[in-house]
Amino acid sequence: MTDNPKRIRLAVFTLLFGCASVAFGHHLEVYGIRPNLGLTAAIVCTLFDGPDFGAVLGLLCGFVEGAYQSSSVGSLAVSRTLVCFGVGAMDNQMYRHTFGMACAVTAVGSFAAEMLYFLSSPQGSALAFLGRAAGSAGLNVVAALLLFPLVRRLVRRRESIIASMAQ
């Protein structure tokens, strides 16, 4: 049985939340810092798939984010791709699919993605960027708490269909 339908769902989910981040990210701002819903969705979705598809989700998220900025498209796409690949690679080794793990991975992954982005495309004060990245990672954790059950449900529904077909 192929994984394609599940992957299509995960890709659409990531795309939708990437667009949501663009559409009303500024409404979700707290003290000038906002969550990155697209990146959070990509990381959480990667937890339910492997590193290779994780890289594709990261690339998709980077492209959507980059398309609505006027600069640094390549840096955004590379940083998101690498982080989601890393999350997927680790997932094969050590993760359990729990809320706690999703939050921890989202926090570390989001922060790492922003830092990679900054390294490849430095801008403004490093300290200010660090603070913003940490704040954004914190808000992404809150978003992950909401997205994790949605993605789990999206994946489990597919898995239960496969299980019933196997029986």
């Binding site: 492997g50 590193p51 290779d52 598809f53 890289a55 594709v56 990261g58 690339l59 980077g62 492209f63 980059g66 006027s70 600069s71 640094s72 498209v73 390549g74 840096s75 796409a77 590379v78 791709t81 690498l82 690949f85 690679a89």
Partner: peptide, 24 residues
């Protein structure tokens, strides 16, 4: 296979970035 996948994605990302920067 996994490494090949991520390398393809990174090449695509870098290519798109260079294309974008040149156009800009």
């Amino acid at each position: 296979r996994r490494v090949k996948g991520v390398v393809v994605c990174i090449v695509l990302a870098v290519g798109a970035g260079i294309w974008h920067n040149r156009a800009t």
